[in-house]
């Protein structure tokens, strides 16, 4: 497999000297689905800004497909890596949606006809056909989010980076957005997403990095969520389904792999029941309550604020 992104020892401090990122090493292969989790202010956005050269790193610490990002031309750099930021109002800065979506391709120096074609294609990918002449401030938040994605897709980047794509979206928009991202990944685009929404994470991640100024941990979603010390230290949590099956374990439910999403839960449950000859056996014995309490406690750090 070919490397899409290779970051070697990236360090960054804000202009006032506050360290933001320390010694980050990451290697991501082409076509992978990566999610980055970390507390607020962990440096996720700062890290992303480095990946397409918006913020410049020292030396050649960032290689995109084996090539130093700082050595790339303007149009090559934006063709390789597209970033969708969190607040769509920051990214839809042109008078109309058409202008916004056309902004990248125009900067690539494309001929007019191709720009128009790309705008059309990008808008249809996010389900905003016919929105060309609309003005951003008349759009709903969900529509703005999708338009912001289209404005990046029109550059047809090989690597797509999204900062909190599901934040503040209603459930339907959130599900739609996740589907769009997954479709893009299936088309071969490497996706890298920062998010707090752990319940949506399993759908979007093959591999998870925990970032908190530096890379704290890396692994499959299962590995990360099983390590509750890690989660606790970084103000993170595990998906509800995962926690629930941990609790079921205390009641004597026995399965090897715990599910991370509802779909997986159904699958796992069906498999376990079949294995146990058509039923699952739950029970309470003397240690159960203590065990449940222990599990609850280990995954529940939300109460500390009130104490």
């Amino acid at each position: 497999m070919k490397e899409a992104i290779c970051v070697k020892g990236l360090t960054y401090s804000y202009p006032d000297g506050t360290p933001a990122l320390g010694d980050i090493n990451i290697t991501i292969n082409e076509g992978e689905k990566i999610v980055i989790i970390g507390p607020n202010g962990a440096g996720k956005t700062t890290f992303f800004l480095h990946l397409n050269g918006t913020l410049k790193s020292q030396d050649n610490r960032i290689l995109i497909k084996g090539k130093d990002i700082n050595g790339m031309s303007n149009s090559e750099r934006i063709r390789k890596v597209g970033i969708v930021f969190q607040d769509p109002d920051d990214q839809l800065f042109m008078p109309t949606i058409f202008d916004d979506v056309a902004f990248g391709p125009i900067n690539m120096g494309m001929p007019e006809e191709e720009v128009k074609e790309r705008v059309k294609k990008a808008l249809s990918k996010v389900g905003l056909e016919g929105f060309e002449e609309r003005v951003p401030h008349n759009l709903s938040y969900g529509q703005k989010k999708r338009a912001a994605l289209a404005a990046v897709l029109s550059m047809e980047p090989e690597i797509l980076i999204l900062d909190e794509p599901t934040a503040n979206l209603d459930p339907k928009s959130r599900a739609d957005f996740i589907k769009v991202i997954n479709n893009l990944n299936k088309e071969g685009i490497t996706t890298m997403i920062a998010m707090h929404d752990v319940n949506a994470l399993p759908d979007l991640a093959d591999r998870v990095y925990v970032l908190n100024k530096g890379i704290i941990a890396e692994g499959s979603p299962m590995e990360i969520f099983s390590d509750w010390d890690l989660l606790k230290d970084n103000n993170l949590e595990a998906p509800d389904i995962f926690k629930f099956f941990k609790v079921l374990g205390c009641f004597g439910y026995n399965c090897e792999d715990l599910p991370l999403s509802l779909d997986e839960a159904v699958e796992v449950l069906a498999r376990t029941i079949e294995k146990e000859n058509g039923h699952v056996h739950l029970h309470i014995h003397e240690h159960t309550h203590a065990e449940v309490k222990d599990v609850m406690h280990s995954y529940n750090h939300h109460t500390t604020w009130h104490e």
């Binding site: 934006i78 970033i83 920051d90 990214q91 800065f93 690539m108």
Partner: peptide, 19 residues
């Protein structure tokens, strides 16, 4: 600041960039 960063990340070079 954020708008500028997002413009840079779309290859802004100082031109209005419109058709």
């Amino acid at each position: 600041q954020r708008v500028y960063q997002s413009m840079i990340s779309k290859g802004y070079t100082g031109n209005p960039g419109t058709i």
